[in-house]
Amino acid sequence: MPGSSRALGLLAGVALDAVFADPRRGHPVAAFGRAASALERRMYADSRRRGIAYTALLVGAAAATGVAAERLARTPSARTALTAVATWAVLGGTSLGREGNAMATALEADDIDAARARLPHLCARDPAGLKAADLARATVESVAENTSDAVVAPLVWGAVAGVPGLLAYRAVNTLDAMVGYRNDRYGNFGWASARLDDLANWAPARLTAVLTVACAPLAGGGPRDAYATMRRDGAAHPSPNAGRCEAAFAGALGVRLGGVNVYGGRTEHRPELGDGAPPETEDIRRAVRLSRAVGLAAAAVCAAAALTRWRRR
């Protein structure tokens, strides 16, 4: 049954990510990034139309690769294995947790230079001059947002569209990280990638927030506080998706997120999310624990959805 192959493949891919994390060499996402950079050099223009074509070519190629691979996998075991490998390739939950804990370790050792050096592994925020409290907040916010981007969203699209969905989603998210910036170079060219990423993450971000509310007790928080904060503050964030995840995490952890962020010399003033004190180093480990719980819950929900969808068909 295709549904059982897809569901088992998603769960096996989650297990592979837990054991092996991201490969340090030869990562397929890195290979896609190099291809995207090469195509950007050929296609770049300060034009939305050119950016739309660039995004369509790369996302379309990723989806077509997934379609071709699924057609070649003719047996249930082959489809399960293919889905498992594709899921492992696009997930980033284990690496996210490791980076978060590495930041906590550096801050616990009062090694501010090491902590600043690790921040680019988590987000695009400028680490220069950030103090321990700023680094802790940036890490918790990044863990919250990337729980959706790197874990829940791939699983959702894998459940909905199989291997083509997994590969296409990762292509969209990678392009957003590469060109989806509101600056002089990418304001027009990266517009399509950024908007498509917003669309692809709309449902996964809200599922992430709901699962965060449900898993709040595993991080020492309460579902009621997490839900109230998500409802009250989620829409205040400039991102239509990240705010839901960050607000739910803030409520679940009992901390306050938001404030002044600097990206490449550009300062942004983010609204405050939550009512607690700013996060401390120990809250990073709690956020990682919460992220892992949400990822496992999402795996169960998405596998069940894949199985149910195919049975109904």
Rank of each mutant, 00 (worst) to 15 (best):
P2H: 14
P2N: 13
G3W: 13
S4V: 15
S5H: 07
R6C: 10
R6H: 10
L8D: 11
G9K: 04
A12V: 13
G13T: 12
A18F: 04
F20T: 02
F20P: 00
F32P: 01
F32K: 09
R34I: 02
L39Q: 05
Y44S: 08
Y44N: 06
D46M: 07
R50P: 03
A53E: 06
G60K: 02
A63N: 06
T65I: 12
G66K: 05
V67S: 04
E70T: 14
L72E: 12
L72D: 07
L72C: 12
A73K: 04
A73E: 03
A73L: 12
R74Y: 04
P76F: 12
S77F: 12
A78L: 14
A81L: 15
A86K: 00
A86S: 15
T87L: 06
W88V: 03
W88H: 15
V90L: 04
L91F: 05
T94I: 05
R98G: 15
A104K: 00
L107V: 04
E108Y: 00
R118Q: 14
C123I: 06
A124W: 00
P127D: 08
A128K: 14
A128M: 06
L130A: 12
K131H: 13
A132H: 10
D134V: 03
T139H: 07
V140D: 05
E145R: 09
N146C: 07
S148A: 14
D149H: 09
V151L: 11
W157Q: 01
G158H: 02
V160T: 06
G162D: 09
L166A: 02
A168F: 01
T174A: 11
A177E: 03
M178P: 01
V179H: 03
N183Y: 06
N183R: 11
F189P: 02
G190K: 05
W191P: 03
W191I: 03
S193I: 01
A194Y: 04
R195Q: 13
L199K: 05
L199T: 13
N201R: 04
W202E: 15
L211K: 04
A216I: 11
A219N: 08
G222I: 04
G222P: 00
R224K: 14
R224W: 12
T229N: 11
T229R: 07
M230K: 01
R231W: 09
R231C: 14
R231Y: 08
D233W: 11
D233N: 09
D233S: 10
G234E: 05
A236V: 08
A236I: 05
H237Y: 07
H237M: 10
P238W: 08
C245Y: 00
E246T: 04
F249M: 11
A250M: 03
G251D: 05
L253M: 09
G254V: 09
L257M: 05
G259H: 12
Y263W: 09
T267C: 07
T267D: 04
E268A: 15
R270Q: 14
G274T: 06
D275G: 13
G276A: 13
A277K: 14
P278N: 08
E280N: 11
T281W: 01
E282K: 13
I284W: 13
V288Q: 07
V288D: 07
A293W: 06
V294Q: 02
L296C: 12
L296I: 13
A298P: 00
A298W: 01
A300F: 13
A300D: 08
A305I: 06
A305C: 11
A305T: 15
A306Y: 10
R311A: 14
